[in-house]
Amino acid sequence: MIELLVTVFSATFFVTVIRTTTPLLFATLGGLISDLSGALNVALEGMMLIAALTAVIVSVYAPWYVAVLSGVAAGAMLGALMALFHLRFKADIILVGFAVNILATGGTVFALAQATGGDKGTSINLQSKAVPAVNLSFLEAIPLIGPTLKALLSGHSILSWLGVFMVFAVWYFLFRTPYGLWLRGVGEYPAAPEAAGIPVGKVRAWSLVASGALAGIGGAQLAMFNYIGFTRDMTSGRGFIALGAVLLGARHPVGAMLAALLFGIFEGLAVVMPNLFNWIPGEIIQTIPFVVTVLALILFSYRAQRALKTRAQARA
C-alpha cells in the first residue's frame, strides 16, 4: 500500500496521468460540444480510431504536425458524414454513430493491412513519427521549487498543452461568444433559436464537425505520443469513457476536464499497478477504468436526479 502511495505521489505518475488524460480530454471536449448541440456523439471511439490510423500513416511521409492535422481532418470528415446522414437524411444519431464505429473497427484493420502489406495487428514496420515533447528544463534554474517544477511540467506532449488551452477555448467559445450561445440554445430548445432565425441545422452540423476534429486530435495523441504507431482497436473504449466523462463533467468544459482527469488517473493506476501488485491479474487491473466509469456515472446521475427533485420540491 505504501509503495502505491509513493508511486501515486511521484512526479513520474503525474506525467503518466497527463499522458493518459490527454486523448480522453480531447474526446470529452468533442463529446461535450456535440452533446450541448443536442446530438449524442457515440462515434467518438470510431473517430479516434480512424484519426489515429490516419495520423500514423501520414506521419510516415510527412512531418508530425501534418500528421496530426490529417488526423483532425479525418475526424472532422467523419463528423460531417454523421451530420449529413443525421440532419439531411434524418437517421437516428445513435445508429449513425454506431455505423461509424463499425466502419472504424473493421476499416482500420483493412486499411492497416493495405498500408503495411498484410499486417493486421500493428503498424510496427511503418516508420511513424511522434508528437514532440515540450522540454522545459530551464525551469530547473529557479531556486527551491525549480527541480520539482521541471519534473512536473517538462516532457509533456505539445498536444497536452494544447488540451489545456482547448479547455479554455471551448469555455470561451461556449459562454462568451454569440455562436456558443446559439449552440447551447439549439441543444436546449431548438424551436426557440429556429424562431429567432438561427440556422439550427447548420449549428448542429458544425458542432458535429468540431466534435470529430477534437476526437481526431485525441486519436493522434494516442498513436503518436502515448504509443508510437497503430495497434488494432487501440482506443479500447476510450471514446465511450469520454462519453461518460461528458455526462460526469456536468456538461461544462471545466467539468469535462476534471472528469477526463479522473479517468486519466485511474487509467494511469492501471498502467503502474501491474509492477506493484503482481498478484492481481492484469485483466482485472485493466477493468479499473471501466468499473470506475460505471460507478461514477451512476453516482453522478443519482446526485443530479436528486438535485432536480429537490429543486422541483422547492418550487412547489
Binding site: L40, V42, G237, L243, V291, V294, L297, L299, S301, Y302
Partner: peptide, 11 residues
C-alpha cells in the same frame, strides 16, 4: 439513477 444506458452497457 438516470444513468445513460449506452455508456454503462458498453462499459
Amino acid at each position: 439513477f438516470g444513468a445513460s444506458e449506452i455508456v454503462s452497457s458498453l462499459m
